[in-house]
Simulated assay, not measured.
Amino acid sequence: MQYHQLGPSELLVSEITFGCMSLGTDNTANARLIGEAWAQGINLFDTADLYDHGRNEETLGKALKSIAREKVLIASKVGNQWKPDNSGWDWNPRKEYILSAVEASLRRLQTDYIDLYQLHGGTMEDPIDETIEAFEQLVQQGKIRYYGISSIRPQVIREYVKRSRIVSVMMQYSLLDRRPEESCFPLLQEHNIGVLARGTVAKGLLVGKAPAQYLNYTAEEVQAAAAAIAIAAGEERTASQTAIRYVLQQPAVSTAVLGIRTTSHLQDAISATTAPTLTPGELRKLNASIPINKYEQHR
């Protein structure tokens, strides 16, 4: 397992991040899986207060109690506030809410601090300076070590790069979603801000799932991309390893966030870290297999 410094922070993150959103409700099974992941080198575990009405944070907190706190990195997210009747959630990036939400997350996670606290979205209509003020206050209080955002909106990302001290941006990236290459990756690299890449296998469409429309791509185009992944995999890698390696070899990416629910998922993720790297020729062929897409909105 390789580790990368996350932007300007002191966090050394494993190149694979354990995406906890996929976890079930069996705390014992989750603890076993998370412990196995940590034993194999994964040190960053990503959750959010939104997932399973907070129970995802709870199961992660229980699982990590058997590991020394300083040996693991916890990432969580804030900004989506459940309605009183739990019928859905509202977007709330206000300072008052963030300061109260972090207390609930800390209780559920059974910890005194969160290593990376991320705004779970963001719009240009938000009170951005107020949001930043909340995160800065939490850093000063020692309740979080660093903060970032989870967003695919270029103009929102630009504002936070310009106005805050974010150390990371979580965003979707894969062979079927190369939109960040045009407007986000260069900016983030210029300012030494790390990228947590999610969606690396494009909902399974790159690794065997039946072709279907995805973003602006037709099912036929998706099938062509999946075929290119299979060809690049050859006999040395699996399709999953190839899709993940494609993302990990993007210079802007610090870590790939993979949804892990079973031991099989975990082994697929771990095996990608030791799979042969893609050659420049293989990368060129993959990139040529489908027209590159670009952000059409929120530019």
Rank of each mutant, 00 (worst) to 15 (best):
Q241R: 07
T131V: 11
H191Y: 12
G54N: 07
L11W: 05
G122R: 07
A272K: 03
L44W: 00
I292P: 02
F185D: 10
N43C: 06
A239N: 14
S174F: 07
I132F: 10
W89A: 10
A228I: 09
L44D: 00
A288V: 00
I166V: 09
N92G: 08
P8E: 06
A48Q: 08
L138I: 04
S271F: 01
V13G: 01
E125G: 13
L44A: 00
D85W: 04
N27H: 08
R245P: 04
V72Y: 12
Y214F: 15
G204N: 10
A212F: 14
G281N: 14
N287D: 14
D85A: 03
E220Y: 11
N27E: 12
I229E: 10
I166K: 03
L99M: 13
G122M: 11
Q172L: 09
W82M: 09
Q155R: 14
S22P: 00
A288S: 12
A233R: 10
S76L: 02
N216S: 15
I166R: 02
Y295Q: 14
L205Y: 14
F18L: 02
I74N: 01
E182H: 15
D177M: 03
G24Y: 01
S100F: 03
Y214R: 10
Y160H: 06
T28R: 08
I292M: 14
I244Q: 06
T200N: 05
W89K: 03
A197R: 08
D268K: 03
R178Q: 15
F185G: 09
Y147L: 06
D268H: 06
I290C: 09
Y51H: 09
P180L: 11
G7W: 03
K71C: 09
M171P: 02
A288K: 07
G121S: 12
R107W: 00
